[in-house]
């Protein structure tokens, strides 16, 4: 699977594309490897660290795609906030730091079968739909100013809705976790 991606990344011979493709190959290998380790490791803290690797490489993918603002937000929000929150969760629930044999559910095979099936279906349909000739051509970094314009004009209503959602989630989290 990974090698396929690397091949895909390298088969386009455009001179301008080559460095990007190499970068993509490296990043994707790191991302997928990290993700696989994350879901298989026996140590909860290690899993959180592998998640960090995945999140960072996804941020790198964003940069590769020219979405710089999203990449920065990814680092700030995901790595800076969500991951820390998750680590707090690990601490507060007193997970075994040294590793735990029973982290996995017994029915691994079922999850594995479903996941493989899902990947086959998705990969097949993606390949059918976009094939190897739908290229990203001449993309340029999308400017942060554009993002800001868009968020505060066209998407102002969803933006406000998201802010209300965050507030609601904040209150909800406090209410749910409160010790009373």
């Amino acid at each position: 699977m990974i090698s396929t991606l690397v091949l895909v990344a390298q088969e386009t011979g455009n001179s301008w594309d080559l460095p990007a493709n190499i970068a993509f190959g490296i990043i994707s290998v790191i991302a997928i490897g990290g993700a696989l380790r994350m879901v298989t490791t026996n140590n909860v803290v290690h899993a959180a660290l592998y998640l960090l690797v995945v999140l960072a490489s996804v941020a790198a993918i964003y940069i590769l795609l020219g979405a710089e603002f999203t990449a920065v937000t990814q680092v700030l929000v995901y790595i800076g906030a969500i991951l820390i929150l998750l680590l707090f969760g690990v601490m507060l629930t007193r997970a075994k730091i040294g590793g735990d044999e029973e982290l996995d559910y017994e029915q691994r095979w079922m999850g594995l079968g479903v996941s493989v099936l899902l990947f086959v279906v998705m990969a097949y349909s993606l390949w059918e739909e976009f094939g190897s000739d739908t290229r990203l051509v001449g993309y340029e970094p999308q400017r942060t100013a554009e993002v800001a314009d868009s968020v505060f004009s066209t998407y102002i209503v969803p933006f406000e809705a998201v802010s209300v959602l965050l507030l609601a989630a904040l209150i909800g989290a406090v209410v749910v976790a409160r010790r009373d």
């Binding site: 699977m1 396929t4 991606l5 895909v8 990344a9 386009t12 455009n14 594309d17 990007a20 493709n21 993509f24 994707s28 991302a31 997928i32 993700a35 696989l36 994350m38 879901v39 995945v54 996804v58 993918i61 795609l65 996995d104 559910y105 029915q107 691994r108 079922m110 999850g111 594995l112 479903v114 996941s115 493989v116 899902l118 990947f119 998705m122 990969a123 993606l126 390949w127 976009f130 094939g131 190897s132 739908t134 290229r135 990203l136 993309y139």
Partner: peptide, 23 residues
């Protein structure tokens, strides 16, 4: 650069995530 390479990467991460949720 193919569009598909990003989509396949996303699909792979998605499926690994599903695997994690399920196991």
């Amino acid at each position: 650069m193919l569009l598909n390479q990003y989509l396949l990467l996303a699909a792979a991460l998605f499926v690994i995530g599903v695997f994690g949720v399920l196991t």
